[in-house]
Measured scan of single mutants.
Amino acid sequence: EEPGTYGVALYRFQALEPNELDFEVGDKIRILATLEDGWLEGSLKGRTGIFPYRFVKLCPDTR
């Protein structure tokens, strides 16, 4: 996996908008950016989108 910051999904998130990223509990999401209003941008399984930061637990930065 690529170096960078990752978050592990604490809850299932179902995308409601085309720019959102849906995921299941336990998915490991690569964090790409921190956005305003409590949203993160991340990538998972070749898809990129935004999601609420409270749905993931950030992992320590590992290489």
Rank of each mutant, 00 (worst) to 15 (best):
T34M: 12
D22S: 14
N19V: 05
Q14P: 05
G49W: 04
I29L: 05
K45L: 06
L32H: 13
I31K: 01
L35F: 09
T5C: 11
F23G: 03
A9F: 03
G4P: 15
R47W: 03
P52V: 01
P3S: 13
V8E: 10
P52I: 02
E17D: 10
A33D: 10
L58M: 13
L21V: 04
Q14C: 09
L10N: 01
F23T: 02
C59D: 10
L10V: 09
E2M: 13
F13L: 02
F51T: 03
E36S: 10
L44H: 07
N19K: 10
N19E: 11
E36T: 09
L58H: 05
I29D: 03
Y6T: 07
P60C: 11
L35D: 04
D37N: 11
R63M: 14
A9D: 00
T5N: 09
F55I: 04
N19Y: 09
R12M: 05
G7F: 02
W39N: 07
D37M: 00
W39E: 08
R63H: 14
R47F: 03
G26F: 03
G42T: 00
T34Y: 12
R30G: 06
G7C: 15
A33K: 13
G4N: 13
R54Y: 09
A33M: 07
R12C: 06
T62K: 09
E36I: 00
E20L: 12
T34S: 12
E17F: 06
G38M: 01
S43C: 09
I31N: 01
L32A: 01
E2L: 13
G49R: 05
G7S: 09
G26R: 01
E20S: 07
L44E: 00
T34K: 13
T48E: 04
W39Q: 09
I50H: 03
P60D: 15
L16K: 12
S43P: 00
R63T: 15
G42F: 02
T48L: 07
E41P: 04
T48A: 03
D61L: 10
P60A: 12
Y11D: 09
R47E: 14
T48D: 01
L58C: 07
I50L: 08
D37V: 05
Y6S: 04
G46A: 04
K28Q: 04
P18G: 06
G38L: 04
V8R: 09
D37W: 00
D37A: 07
Y11S: 10
R12S: 11
L58Y: 06
E36Y: 03
D61K: 12
P3K: 15
N19S: 09
G42I: 03
P3N: 11
F13A: 01
E41G: 02
V25G: 06
